[in-house]
Amino acid sequence: MIPTPHAVWADIERIRAQAPLIHNITNFVVMNNTANALLALGASPAMVHAPEEVEDFVSISSALVVNIGTLDATFVAGMKLAMRRAKDLGKPIVFDPVGVGATAFRNRVSRELLTLAAPNIIRGNASEIMALAGLDAQTKGVDSLFGSEAAVEAARRLSRAWGSVVVVSGATDYIIRHDQTATIANGHPLMTKVTGMGCTATALTGAFAATNPDYFQAATHAMAVMGIAGERAVGKQAAPGSLQLNFLDALYHLTEADITERLNSAGA
């Protein structure tokens, strides 16, 4: 499937019209960034991880985003309850295996979560996707030591194993569903100098999944919007601090003309 500007824009219009509530169990580093990005896109964020209330929040949310960036026992307990509840209710689940492959604890938790409730969409960098697929991939904390193209076969393996759409982020984003592939080549290298941009991509993917039940299409459109907004933000001023602010403004002011002008995609 080759994404079209019209289809991407239609998803953005649905998000802005519906303002879906996106339940995020995410890490302390990015909570503010991802909440503001969801608001700028047109969605409504909830940053809730306490085991005592996650099931209630899942029940009123349109999608669940789980990000394992800053794990502890309380977070893990909340993730398990929320993912089980979302699966029972048929709510879309987007999973970000931040730093998987770096520690035994992180690896074990990731396997437990996948087994408990296979996500509809998994998004990570090449090292994370390769480690999650069971390959002996090297990591540098939460950073990838591989280009996204190196993880395409691992992404296919993951997609077949769990039935998930798998997104490999990088200079080119690969979106995989079984034998189906889309690529998005938008974005800018400066985005790697701002913490949490990958986590933001995952959160935005939750908003697209909340309003588009074709999760392959939803994930592809989310990565396109992420990259295009990043390009527009860098165009305003090429510096990391400014990028954070300009990225939110770019999301908020994004138009169909921006997507038509900039979308760089392919499909197979």
Rank of each mutant, 00 (worst) to 15 (best):
M1T: 13
P5L: 13
H6S: 15
W9M: 09
D11A: 11
I12T: 00
I12S: 00
I12E: 01
I15N: 03
R16Q: 11
Q18R: 13
A19S: 14
P20V: 08
H23F: 10
N27C: 00
F28P: 01
F28K: 14
N33D: 15
A35V: 02
L39F: 02
A40Y: 11
L41A: 07
L41P: 00
A46F: 05
A46C: 12
M47G: 12
V48I: 14
E53G: 08
V54Y: 05
V54G: 05
E55K: 08
D56F: 13
D56H: 14
V58W: 01
I60D: 04
S61G: 10
S61Q: 03
S62L: 09
A63P: 05
V66N: 09
D72R: 13
D72G: 10
T74H: 14
F75P: 00
F75Q: 12
K80T: 11
A82V: 06
A82C: 08
R84L: 14
R85S: 10
A86Y: 07
A86R: 04
K87F: 13
L89P: 02
L89R: 01
G90W: 11
D96F: 05
G99R: 05
G101R: 01
A102T: 09
T103M: 03
F105T: 12
R108D: 14
V109D: 02
R111A: 08
L116P: 06
L116R: 07
A117D: 05
N120F: 05
R123W: 04
S127I: 03
I129S: 01
I129H: 00
A133K: 02
G141M: 11
L145V: 15
F146N: 07
G147H: 12
S148Q: 06
E149C: 06
E153D: 12
E153V: 11
A155L: 10
A155E: 06
R157A: 14
W162R: 06
G163M: 08
V168I: 13
V168G: 05
S169Y: 00
S169F: 01
G170I: 04
G170R: 04
Y174T: 05
R177L: 11
H178C: 10
H178Y: 15
D179I: 09
T183E: 07
I184A: 10
A185S: 15
N186C: 07
H188W: 02
P189D: 13
T192S: 11
V194W: 09
G196P: 08
G196E: 11
M197N: 02
M197Y: 06
M197S: 03
M197Q: 08
T200K: 08
T202H: 06
T202C: 13
T202I: 07
A203E: 01
G206Y: 06
A210P: 08
N212Q: 13
D214N: 14
D214P: 05
Y215H: 12
A219W: 01
T220G: 03
T220E: 01
A222F: 01
A224Y: 00
M226H: 10
G227V: 03
G227S: 03
G227P: 00
I228E: 03
A229N: 02
G230T: 09
A233H: 06
A238D: 12
A239T: 11
A239R: 12
P240Y: 07
P240N: 10
G241D: 04
G241T: 09
S242D: 13
L248V: 09
D249H: 09
L254S: 04
D258L: 06
I259G: 03
E261H: 15
R262L: 15
L263V: 07
A268Q: 15
A268E: 14
